[in-house]
């Protein structure tokens, strides 16, 4: 990806939406604010003009029914995308997501499924406090029947969005508002990034750092700082949180013997706990140091900037964890 067109993360999603809606009439999107950049940034730009209000549906504030509608439409043969511009509000929709969509294939003996995309945006910081800031991907990753993806850059955002919409199962697509203006090279043609596969961002021999979503870039910041100190990190971007790419992590930790997991959710029962457990189960004898986890403290998001500054994970937090086991 050394040459080519640059696109922001949010416009990469916008391009994915346009291309999907262009080639497949069964793709449609609904949710609160699809008409309003105040809600969805520029991710839904031009969609109504191009595809009409039948397929681009701004909705009342009824998360439970609107999410259920997306699930029902997907059961009836549509490729439905429901957006929750703030992830926190999707909690009103736990029933259609967890009771219904996630279980649908299993409880029908595979005769039916709900190939819906639950698109949720994490939107935190800015003194928004406890109900506008939650990163709940670990909860969804707990549920059999769901897949969960969390792209860290514009290229992945487009490829994972297309893969999510085309998947035959319900997929939770979680992105992060802090990434929306970040650019990278994004091919113009349609492409999919396989769900369930992670990516090695940088190879290294001393230590494995597993990261995802916004925190991949924070982890990247550590690389040059640490390499100047002679620490050679292997950095993995999970891309998919469920099913996470266990093989890739195992292979890496076998080589390095050390693992740091950087995860933007609360520590207790998080995806980081799951990854750590699976590495302990399979590689106990290979580990040269205890696994380190970098998570949010088990505390709701605060408002005040003085508290936010110690609450959120930064490159500095990650470096401190790494240095514990150098």
């Amino acid at each position: 990806m050394s040459t080519g067109r640059k696109l922001s993360y949010s416009l990469a999603i916008n391009e994915a939406l346009k291309q999907l809606m262009e080639i497949d009439k069964s793709v449609f999107i609904l949710g609160q604010g699809v008409k309003s950049p105040w809600y969805v940034g520029n991710t839904c730009r031009d969609l109504i003009e191009l595809y009409g209000e039948d397929r681009v549906i701004d909705t009342p504030i009824s998360e439970n029914a609107m999410t259920g509608a997306a699930v029902g439409a997907s059961i009836a043969g549509m490729k439905a995308i429901i957006i929750h511009p703030r992830l926190d509000f999707a909690l009103y929709a736990f029933d259609p997501i967890i009771n219904q969509a996630a279980n649908w294939s299993y409880m029908s003996g595979g005769r039916s499924s709900a190939p819906v995309v639950f698109w949720m945006v994490i939107n935190r910081g800015g003194e928004q406090a406890a109900q506008h800031s939650q990163a709940l991907h670990s909860i969804f990753a707990h549920i059999p029947g769901l897949k969960v993806v969390a792209p860290s850059n514009a290229y992945d955002a487009k490829g994972l969005f297309i893969a999510a919409v085309n998947d035959k199962n319900p997929v939770v697509f979680i992105d992060d508002r802090w990434l929306y203006n970040r650019e990278c090279i994004v091919p113009e043609e349609m492409y999919e990034i396989p769900i369930g596969k992670g990516k090695i961002i940088k190879e290294g021999n001393d230590m494995t750092v597993v990261s995802s979503s916004f925190l991949v870039s924070e982890s990247e910041k550590c690389l040059s700082i640490l390499s100047s100190e002679g620490i050679d990190i292997e950095l993995i971007d999970l891309r998919t949180l469920k099913p996470f790419d266990e093989d890739l992590i195992i292979k890496s930790v076998k080589k390095t013997g050390k693992l740091i997991i950087v995860d933007g959710s609360w520590k207790t029962n998080s995806i980081s706990a799951e990854i750590a457990a699976s590495v302990y189960e399979k590689l106990f004898g290979y580990l040269k140091a205890p696994i380190q986890r970098v998570n949010l403290p088990d505390t709701p998001a605060p408002a005040s900037r003085s508290l936010e500054s110690v609450y959120y994970i930064t490159a500095e937090t990650i470096i401190n964890a790494i240095k514990k086991i150098v």
Partner: peptide
Amino acid sequence: MGIVPIVAGTISLAMGASLAS
């Protein structure tokens, strides 16, 4: 299309199927 015991659980699903139609 679907029968489940969560009370009212399929009302929105049915509404979504009619939206598809």
